[in-house]
Amino acid sequence: MEALFSILIGVFFAAAVYLMLSKFLVRILLGVAIFGNAVNLLLFTAGRLVPEVPPIIAAGLDRQLAVTANPLPQALILTAIVISFSFFAFLLVLSYRAFQDLKTDNVNEMRVAEPAAEAAPPTGY
């Protein structure tokens, strides 16, 4: 099953990278969203897949005896999902702001921080 997942994740990554290489903000955003999912799936798969048995210790037992899904990647991914969501929201608002203020959604035309023709700094002291 991991093999199939690997291929799926590869497709996710390829799509995300292709979208992020676009010049237009919206596509970059979509790419970022897919990228986040791809990374989460990557972590999930790297911890190996076990179908349908959640990592919960049965009542009355003191330790896990059954073979269950790997809890560690799950813990990592859980927080990652929430954080990537909040960052995605931030990116979304930031893009919208940039679009509003700069009147463009083409990232190549956004040259406020790094103007195209910046004069050389003075060489005096």
Binding site: P54, I56, L78, T79, I81, V82
Partner: peptide, 12 residues
């Protein structure tokens, strides 16, 4: 703490 759930999910 004992079943699926927790602060993150609840909060969402």
């Amino acid at each position: 703490h004992n079943e699926p759930g927790g602060g993150f999910i609840g909060g969402l």
